Amino acid sequence: MAWAGLQTALQLIYPPRCLTCGGMVESDFGLCGPCWRDTPFIGGLVCDLCGTPLPGVDDGVPVHCDSCMTTERPWQQGRAALMYRDSGRRLVLSLKHGDRHDVVRPAAKWMAHSARPLLREDTLIAPIPLHWSRMARRRFNQSALLADALARETGRTSCPDLLIRANRTRSLEGLTRNERFATLMGSIRAHPKRTALMEGRSILLVDDVMTSGATLAAATEACYASRAREVCVIALTRVANES
């Protein structure tokens, strides 16, 4: 009763606000009606490898988008919760560059819904790692925050340092698909003290944005090098019309 009273008092002092527009909402970690309608959630028929929405009806048969039919994906399955545009893009940028950690909890709920087909009983959840120099400058890894929250949401285990960035790569912004893959080749490795955790196990890799899939591919290869049984991927957002 005391805790419920404290929550009520806090809501009176700090009423819940919409994550995107700041308007009043009924509960914490929510979106107002207009922002919910403007948020590009992914649903229905999607590519089984990257989560891109596709025309048609989901009849349970895995289908692949044009991009995944022309670019080999080393992972088993992939999904994304939102498209990287409009409110989806603003939410990612506010988390990544605006220290909006309040985005993490609802984002994990949306990702958990999308990740249902990817989850196994022994799934170990791990984030795409940052190089130590970028981590020092940014102070946090947004993918690690999402991975930890997703693990709590799904009742699975997470390991924030399962993988490491062996070297600092240049920014991928503006690079073509082939340039992205070439830049990231060999840049991600298993943490030498965590390899035993992956052997014979299903790994779910978490990132905030999937563009070409080059980063997730490099991380997937690192997991298979440590004898993971299978690797699946989940991103908060998916970029369309990649080049």
Rank of each mutant, 00 (worst) to 15 (best):
M1L: 12
G5E: 11
L6E: 08
L6Y: 03
Q7C: 13
T8R: 09
A9Q: 03
A9N: 01
Q11P: 00
L12W: 13
L12M: 09
I13V: 12
P15M: 10
P15K: 07
P16G: 12
R17M: 05
C18Q: 00
M24Q: 12
E26G: 13
G30N: 08
P34A: 09
D38E: 09
D38M: 05
P40C: 01
G44V: 05
G44S: 04
L45T: 01
T52L: 13
L54Q: 01
P55C: 05
D58F: 04
G60I: 08
V61W: 08
D66A: 15
D66M: 14
C68I: 11
M69C: 13
T70P: 04
T71C: 08
W75G: 05
Q76G: 03
Q77E: 12
A80P: 05
L82E: 00
M83N: 03
R85I: 02
R85Q: 07
S87C: 13
G88W: 01
R89F: 12
R89S: 10
V92A: 02
S94D: 13
L95V: 10
G98I: 12
D102V: 08
R105Q: 12
A108R: 00
A108I: 04
K109V: 15
W110N: 00
R116P: 02
R116T: 12
R116M: 14
R116S: 11
L119T: 07
R120G: 01
T123H: 03
A126G: 14
P127E: 02
H131M: 10
S133R: 14
R134T: 05
R138M: 03
F140N: 02
S143T: 13
A144P: 10
L145R: 01
D148V: 06
D148N: 10
A149C: 11
L150M: 06
L150E: 04
E153P: 05
E153V: 02
S158M: 13
P160D: 11
L162D: 01
L163M: 11
T169W: 06
R170E: 15
L172S: 04
T176G: 15
R177T: 15
E179C: 08
E179T: 09
R180T: 06
T183R: 02
R189C: 14
R189F: 00
A190E: 03
R194K: 13
R194T: 03
T195K: 13
M198I: 03
G200D: 13
G200A: 12
R201Q: 14
L204P: 09
L205F: 04
V206S: 00
V209A: 09
T211G: 09
T215Y: 05
L216Y: 00
A217V: 02
T220Q: 05
A222C: 10
A225Y: 09
R227G: 04
R227N: 10
R227E: 15
R227H: 13
A228N: 07
R229G: 12
A240V: 10
N241Y: 14
E242L: 11
S243K: 10
S243D: 07
